[in-house]
Each structure stands twice: as C-alpha cells, then as structure tokens.
Amino acid sequence: MLKTRIIPTLLWKNVGLVKGIGFDSWRRVGSLLPAIRVYNTRQVDELILVDITATDEHRSPDFETVNEISCECFVPFTVGGGIKSTQDIKELLRCGADKVAINSAAFKSPQLISEGAQIFGSQCIVASIDAKKNSRGKYECYSNSGKKNEHIEVGEWAKKLEELGAGEILITSIEQDGTMKGYDTNLIRTITKVVSIPVIASGGAGNYEDMYKAIEKGKASAVAAASIFHYTQQTPMEAKEYLATKNVPVRITKISQDDHSSDRGLVLGLF
C-alpha cells in the first residue's frame, strides 16, 4: 500500500534556515546543510526546500546550493522558489532535485506547468498554492510569498493546475502557517474534492493529531510541517508511530533501531 508521507519543510533565505508566522516575522532557525544531515539519518519520507526570497528578489533558483544539498541528501526532495522557465526546472533536476515546486510563475505563465509536465513528466511538477480566506469566506490564491492576491479561488486554480499537468498540489494556509494551531482542513478538502492528483497539506501543524486530521478530514496524501519539528520535541518518526495507531499507512523501517531522540527540535538544537 502507498504510504502517507510526512514531509519536513525547510525554508531558506541566504543559506540560512528560517521560519515565520503567517508568512511574516521570519526568524533564523539554523543552517540548511546540518539540518539536512540530521534528516538524512531519520526516517523522513521526503523534504521540501523553498528559497523564499528568490521570486521577490527576481533571482533564479540558487543552483549551487541545490547542488550542495543533493550531494548530502539521500532523502527525495522537492525544490521551490524562483522557478520561471523550463530551463530552471531542467537545471534543478540536474542539480539533484527530484521534484520542483512552482507557485508565482504559474499565474504569469501557466504554460510553464504544461511544458514542464510534457518535458520532464507530471510526476516531478509540484504546483504550490498559498491561500488565504477573503471577507466572504472564500479561499483566494496568493503569489510572491503571500504578498500578492491573485484573486483566483483555490478550487478553480487547483483544477486548472491539474489540467495543465501538475503531478501534485502543495496547499499552504497562509493564516495557519507557523501558528502551530492545526491545518486548515476545510481548505485542504476544498482542493482534494476537485482534483485527483495527490495533495500535500501544509501550514499549521502543531501536533500529531493535527496531521491525522489533515489526512482523515482533509484527505491529504501527505503532510508537510516545519515549526513542529524546529521548535518542539516532536519528531517525524513519532508522528508516524502516532498515525500508525490510527490506522494510517506509514513507512516505519524496522531495520533501523536507531534512537531518534536527537532530531527533537533539531534545528534549534544545533546552537
């Protein structure tokens, strides 16, 4: 059976690992490579790495850093931030990314998704959506790290992205992100109701039960989380053990009997 994935998200800004609240108040929480080295030895299913300032600074993705990461990273990983062309995608895949996450550029040029899917296959094109509820209670899409309202309803945009050839959707609630108050399961369900590709839930995980709700109520195929792993004692491995007790299929490798206590609050713990 295909397992539900637990995916730590690492956001970086000038090689520093950061985390914010509601896409704001960015705080430096460590360095990228040491964090990856720790996750390597743990049973994380995938990693998502996003360069959060690339689009705003009109930069291309930082290929050199991705190359360095891939030399160290034995976990499948997705890279996002600043991707504007199929050349960028090609370069990132060559640098070792398994998948790329595209957000802002898809609004300006939806053909980037279709061309990317055609050349590299849908399986490596993750369409990322950052969403916020408007005053009428509808979820709207935002680009440029949550700064620009694209005035498109999320369900509509998700369907469009699937039609264009996206292989997965990464949905992040801007309002919940970094709060550790739980995922917005309604938002996740809004997406999973209208698409048949896998959906990765993101934004708001504070405990393992939140993850369970995103999977059970939101119908997510995977859950991404950052703060919970940066700031608390909770670990990806324990998350899986908890989910297993709720009959969620997860990958627990029995060969490894390592003590995984050292990845608690792993990033802050490095200082």
Binding site: M1, L2, R5, G121, Q123, E168, P198
Partner: peptide, 28 residues
C-alpha cells in the same frame, strides 16, 4: 489511487535474485 504514484510503497519478489539479497518482501 492517485496518479502520479508518489511516495513509499512495498515490493514483493516474484523470483529469487541476488539483487534483492537481504531485502525482505514488503520493504518500502
């Protein structure tokens, strides 16, 4: 079942082969 098939899933051998030496059936 969603397509693409993304993530960890089990393998079950249909014949014995040295390439799966030390890897039990059901490994992800």
């Amino acid at each position: 079942e969603k397509i693409p098939h993304v993530g960890w899933n089990e393998i079950y051998c249909k014949q014995k082969n040295p390439i799966f030496e030390g890897i039990p059936d059901g490994t992800d």
